[in-house]
Each structure stands twice: as C-alpha cells, then as structure tokens.
C-alpha cells in the first residue's frame, strides 16, 4: 500500500481531507502476506448501511476466502477513498449528491469490477421516494415546515459551501457509471453477497440463483 504524502493544500480555504493525510506505514511482514491476494472493497453512498451489514453477514464464510482475498475498505476501515486499486468493488446506496458522484467515479476508476448491492444502488430504493416530488418541496418539508423546527429561530435550508450539493433526483449507480453486476434486495442476504464474491474469486461466471434472489 502506498503512503500518501500531504497534498498541496489551498491554505486560503484551510481545507484538508483525511485521505490526503500521511498514514502510518503498514507492517512489512503483514504486507508480504497479502501479496497476490484479490483486493475487495465496499463503499456506501446514499443508503441505510443495511447492505454493508449484510456484507458482514458473510460471517465465518469469509474466513475460507481470506487466503485469496483481502478487504481494503469496508465499514471497519472507513477511509474516504480506497488506498489501492481493487479487483472487486461493492457499492451500497444510490447517488443523491455531488459527493456521491465524485466518490462513485473515483471508485469506478480504481476497481476492475463494480457491483451494485441492494435496492438503493440497483434502482434508487427508499431515498428515491423523493423522486416523486420536486426537490425544493422535500427541502422545505425537512427544514422550513418541519414539525421539529426550533421555535423562535428563522428556519433555513442548510447551504454552507462545505456541504455537498444534493442532486435534483436520486439515481441508480448504473446511471452514473458502468456497473458490472447487480445484487438486488433490501438488503440482500449475506448469502447472496457471498455467492457473487465466491463466484468471482474462483473464476466462475457470476450467477445469483432464483432461490436467493429477492427484492425486499
């Protein structure tokens, strides 16, 4: 794994990202043991983390894969950007903001195979319920006319420049970048994620049988 050097920062805006900070070098012996393994990651865009939990639901089945696979990024190693190129990239969640677009595009450039995991990534899911309404109406409901608005304070829609801009609609991942495979479900079972990963790791064509495919 490479060590990132401190990126040229724009001192005028005093802005620095965690993924640009220097990192503690990884133990050389450990690195050598990971040599030749298939690198796998999972990121989350706009979802509920349910699919990420299903990824962990592979439980001890993942142990048998660990001599072939190493997991660079998951909910346990919550880095903003994957530190190295990966063979397999799982994505939870659809695209609802500029930040989601940048993250997904970076991920696409740095993964050989991308997989949409769960309803939100596959078609938009629960967050896409807002696609049926104009965005302004949703923001007004959330921030201006909200029943939990603090009384005596003039309500505003948050607009700090550090906040990412939300997109007008929520999009499935494949409408933003090319996705190679899809695992439906809300969330899919750990079994389904394991089956796809196991197929890929063992060089079999990816096949999610009818018995474990589900949409809810």
């Amino acid at each position: 794994m490479s060590n990132h050097s401190v990126k040229q920062v724009n001192s005028a805006v005093n802005e620095i990202y965690s993924h640009d900070l220097p990192r503690t070098p990884v133990d050389a012996e450990f690195l050598a043991s990971q040599e030749g393994k298939i690198k796998v990651s999972m990121i989350a865009l706009v979802g509920c983390w349910g699919c990420t939990l299903s990824f962990l639901d592979m439980d001890e089945r993942i142990l048998n894969l660990l001599d072939k696979v190493t997991i660079l990024r998951s909910s346990l190693t919550d880095v903003k950007r994957i530190p190295d190129r990966c063979v397999v990239g799982f994505v939870e969640g659809g695209v609802a903001s500029e930040e989601n677009i940048e993250t997904l595009e970076h991920y696409r450039e740095n993964c050989d195979i991308l997989i949409s995991v769960g309803a939100c990534a596959v078609w938009g899911g629960v967050p896409s319920m807002r696609n049926l309404l104009p965005l302004s109406e949703c923001l007004e409901e959330a921030y201006i006319n909200s029943p939990t608005a603090v009384s005596g304070v003039i309500p505003i829609i948050p607009n700090h420049p550090d906040l990412t801009k939300v997109t007008t609609k929520v999009y499935p991942c494949h409408e933003v970048v090319k996705m190679d495979y899809f695992i439906p479900g809300c969330p899919p079972d750990g079994d389904a994620i394991f089956k796809v990963l196991d197929d890929l790791v063992n060089g079999r064509p990816v096949d999610l049988p009818t018995s474990i495919n589900r949409y809810d």
């Binding site: 949409s116 596959v122 078609w123 938009g124 896409s128 696609n131 049926l132 309404l133 609609k169 499935p172 494949h174 409408e175 495979y181 899809f182 695992i183 439906p184 999610l208 009818t210 495919n213």
Partner: peptide, 13 residues
C-alpha cells in the same frame, strides 16, 4: 432472473 431493469426507472407520480 431479473437483477435490474435494462430500462430507465421512471418514477411517475
């Protein structure tokens, strides 16, 4: 064996 729709999701209100 549908995993995803090949058509654009329309979200018609």
């Amino acid at each position: 064996g549908m995993m995803v729709s090949r058509f654009e999701y329309r979200f018609t209100p």
